[in-house]
Design a protein around this nucleic acid. Structure first.
Length: 832
RNA sequence: GCCCGGAUGGCGGAACUGGUAGACGCAAGGGACUUAAAAUCCCUCGCUCGUGAGAGUGUGCGAGUUCGAUUCUCGCUCCGGGCACCA
């Protein structure tokens, strides 16, 4: 074929991609095992839920991860890059009910389909490490971890008010309630009293908080979100004696400095003291019905609308231990039983919420902190004053600065015995019981004689029943299946009943990254040697929507597994990249919006390489990506340009010398320089912040230079070695992004050799250096002229050249030069 | 309300440590090739004025620091995200 024949050729991506995918699979090219001779690198993308088909969000996530994996391999690392399936969950049950099938069938069918889709993308996974969390070979180890946590006192059972989702027919963890609605189906979550199992994540609160400081490789935003979620506050815990009763009322405050400003007390409607207060209370009836109404309203309202502050006087008083003030006790709708003590000391002068309440019920407002140079008059205040200042009207603490007063007041309370320093957290223990079929069974047994008994480890796994006895469907909850729950007590051998709740599916994803180190290990959940070799994950990649839920739970599990002796790390993910969403027509791609682009259609039309390339090129990974089908075509055109060039010039490239001649003409020097500049830019873009969009731009520029300097016969001829160097660099630099394409062209140029055997190209700083620079001449900061100068010009000659410049002269003429600023290699600014 | 981000051409996005704003791609317009179209190749492309050379103006808005600000400081506006009667 002559060069002309390639002018309009379009590369046959389909056969090229199939060919290389088959080869990678057959040769297990990306299989990895421990190799002490190389440095390890563990890159992981959040594993998918097998919902049916992959979507563009997956393509983006896994393309990013694959570039990292392939890049690190080129850099000589021994790279662990596994994939698996987060395969327990409600959608499988819903689909099973709809199709009158079994959740396992639906799930495994989806896995098969999606695995095939992922393979079509050419992702460099070690498929031999694939795991599916719904497989008993996975969840039996989870059950064992559960039992070991139980032995350690990290699992307990409790009846509490839980979040109940009616449409999912199950309990939700606090983290799974978003604005009062279910994270999965948006149904309003209701309060319900239920017995359930809890993981004691609060035993690790301080460590989870403190170790956030170690996560320098995480986006600041995610660290902040976790910090807020844990919600630590420090302050004073203090007892107020209830007047005429034996009981004391405990409060927690972060503003002990305002304690002399307390003018009333607010307690939650559910506060246990209320019953006592209502005994022999003439207004008991009235107060009870008020409390009842608050409860009803709470049920109906979603958490987001803030109701008007409301309360009712209990008729009782308590005594402020600091000044002996007798203050009325109110039941108020804004006090939460679940935070602090369920009772709040009210300081209307310095708390906006208390202020509004005091105004409504005409309660006294008593300022006790005076911000500098201000007077506070309770009559005139329109809002609470929250600024720091000097204490006033505060007994022996008057005059002290509010900041210092906090500690002094806490110390005093401790000394007197009615209070102490105290810390509270927003974080609650993790409720993991789910009343669903398609999850890992909780391995516990109830015996009438022996009570709650753990299933012995040698009886694991407790598997899900697959019988057809259930009348309703094949995925009826376990409590409807006698063959599952009827069992014998492990302790006494008598009749017993199995726990019928399954675990929250977030439990599976809290440790899967560790299991990948030894996915087929049959002796315990983790092979410690393998786990300590591969962990922590060096680079974790996924959507920011998991900032709290999954990432917090995984951090917790890592610490638990460490304390159980399986791991020797404190944190699971050294670096975290949270990728943006894929957007089309202004909103996130979703079935309900009808703006979904199916990756399979794209692969069919343009191939996997173009699909990957576009998802990397259109935006930096952490930002949202606006879908643009024309942009995809642009990427396809780019690959075709390279393809045509390589094929048209293959003979001369193959014949080229590997070494670059010492003497180069101007065109050759320009291309040689551009090649090395590009290697440098692409390497830095990937290394510094994974900005693949600019890396790809840089290669596009090199391709433009290449075709411009060799295609134009009017220019100087270019030595084959220089062309060859440019082409080889382009293929290596693009290989992490478009692997099939580069593998194919590399093989064509290198007698069938595999590009995977190559190393990442190195740049020569000397070759990358410009020998001529454009210097900008500014007059009063405005660009007036440009100057081509040798790169090594000295400051004096540069200044002289600038002053002599014709354009500059026009603006200087007739004016006095007041100052000249020369910035090496950049500009000369003449101030007149 | 509090805490994080962000705002640059018609669009997605570039711009090192304060030093040529708009790289790269898309779209658009013009041209070459073609009977024609597609594909490919070449040229133009922030806005205003000007035939042109060029001049003015321009990175959400308003100030400030500086010889010089997309970049730093202060004050706003809008957009996105997180948390929220949290005591």
């Amino acid at each position: 074929m002559s060069a002309k024949d390639y002018q309009e050729a379009v590369y046959d991506f389909q056969s090229i991609e199939e060919k290389w995918q088959d080869r990678w699979l057959k040769d297990a090219t990306y299989r990895v095992s421990t190799d002490k001779s190389k440095e390890k690198y563990y890159v992981l993308e959040m594993f998918p839920y097998p919902s049916g088909r992959i979507h563009m969000g997956h393509v983006r996530n896994y393309s990013i991860g694959d570039v990292v994996a392939r890049y690190k391999r080129f850099r000589g690392y021994n790279v662990l890059h596994p994939m698996g399936w987060d395969s327990f969950g409600l959608p499988a049950e819903n689909a099973a009910i709809k199709n009158n099938s079994h959740p396992a069938r639906w799930t495994y069918d989806n896995i098969d389909y999606m695995r095939n889709q992922l393979r079509q993308l050419g992702l460099s996974y070690d498929w031999e490490r694939e795991i599916a969390t719904c497989n008993p070979k996975y969840y039996r180890w989870e059950q064992q971890i559960f039992l070991e946590m139980y032995q350690k006192g990290l699992v307990y059972q409790q009846t509490t008010t839980v979040n109940w989702c009616e449409s999912c027919q199950t309990v939700l963890a606090n983290e799974q309630v978003i604005d009062g609605t279910c994270w999965r189906c948006d149904e309003t979550v209701k309060a319900r009293n239920m017995n359930g199992w809890f993981f004691k994540i609060t035993a690790y609160t301080e460590e989870l908080l403190a170790d956030l400081d170690k996560l320098s490789g995480w986006p600041e935003k995610v660290v902040t979100m976790q910090r807020n979620w844990i919600g630590k506050s420090t302050g004073l815990h203090c007892d107020f004696q209830v007047d005429g009763f034996e009981q004391k009322l405990s409060i927690f405050t972060t503003r002990p400095d305002t304690i002399f400003g307390v003018t009333f007390m607010s307690i939650a409607a559910e506060h246990p003291l209320l019953d006592t207060l209502l005994q022999d209370n003439p207004r008991a009836q009235e107060i009870r019905s008020f409390v009842q109404r608050l409860g009803d309203e709470k049920q109906q309202q979603s958490h987001e609308d803030l109701t008007e502050k409301e309360g009712i006087f209990t008729g009782c008083y308590c005594i402020n231990p600091f000044n002996g003030d007798k203050v009325p006790i109110f039941v108020a709708n804004f006090v939460l039983m679940g935070y602090g003590t369920g009772a709040v000391m009210a300081v209307p002068a310095h708390d906006q919420r208390d202020f509004e309440f005091a105004k409504k019920y005409q309660l006294p407002i008593k300022p006790v902190v005076l911000p500098k140079d201000t007077q506070l008059n309770s009559e005139e205040m329109t809002e609470a004053s929250v600024l720091p200042g000097a204490l006033t009207d505060s007994g022996k603490f008057s005059g002290i600065d509010s900041g210092a007063a906090q500690q002094a007041i806490i110390d005093f309370a401790a000394e007197q015995g009615f209070g102490s320093a105290h810390t509270t957290y927003r974080l609650r223990d993790w409720g993991i019981s789910r009343q669903r079929y398609w999850g890992a069974p909780i391995p516990m047994v109830y015996c009438e004689k022996c009570g709650v008994q753990p299933v012995p480890v040698n009886q694991l796994p407790v598997t899900l029943p697959e019988d057809k006895e259930s009348q309703q469907s094949e995925c009826a909850p376990l409590h409807q299946r006698p063959s599952f729950y009827e069992t014998s007590c492990p302790a006494c051998g008598g009749e017993a009943r199995r726990e019928t709740d399954t675990m929250d599916t977030f439990v599976e994803s809290s440790w899967y990254f560790a299991r990948y180190a030894s996915p087929r290990f049959t002796e315990s959940p983790l092979n410690k040697e393998e786990a300590s070799h591969w962990l922590p994950v060096d680079q974790y990649i996924g959507g920011v929507e998991h900032a709290i839920l999954h990432l917090l739970y995984s951090r917790f599990f890592t610490k638990v597994l460490r304390d159980l002796g399986y791991l020797d790390i404190d944190e699971p993910f050294t670096n975290l990249l949270t990728q943006g969403m894929v957007i089309k027509d202004g909103s996130k791609m979703s079935k309900s919006k009808g703006n979904v682009v199916d990756p399979s259609d794209l692969i069919k039309e343009y191939g996997a390489d173009t699909t990957r390339l576009f998802s990397l090129f259109a935006a930096p990974p952490e930002k949202d990506l606006e879908w643009n089908s024309k942009g995809v075509e642009g990427c396809f055109r780019f690959l075709n340009r390279i393809y045509r060039f390589v094929l048209a010039n293959q003979e001369s490239i193959i014949a080229a010398e590997q070494s670059i001649p010492v003497e180069l003409n101007k065109t050759e020097r320009g291309l040689h320089r551009k090649t090395h500049q590009t290697i440098k830019r692409v390497s830095n873009n990937i290394e510094q912040n994974f900005h693949f969009n600019t890396a790809i731009s840089a290669v596009m520029e090199l391709v433009n230079s290449l075709t411009a300097s060799t295609g134009d016969s009017s220019k100087e001829s270019v030595d084959n070695s220089v062309t060859c160097e440019a082409v080889r660099s382009i293929l290596l630099l693009l290989c992490p992004m478009v692997p099939h394409f580069c593998a194919e062209l590399w093989a064509i140029l290198h007698n069938g050799a595999s590009i995977d055997e190559e190393q990442w190209p190195k740049w020569d700083e000397e070759a990358a250096k410009e020998d001529e620079l454009t210097i900008v001449i500014q007059i009063n900061g405005k660009v007036r002229s440009r100057l081509q100068v040798a790169a090594d010009i000295d400051e004096t000659s540069l200044q002289a050249l600038a002053l002599a410049d014709e354009n500059a002269q026009k603006f200087i003429a007739g004016k006095t030069i007041r100052k000249t600023i020369v910035i090496q290699k950049k500009l000369v600014n003449i101030v007149v």
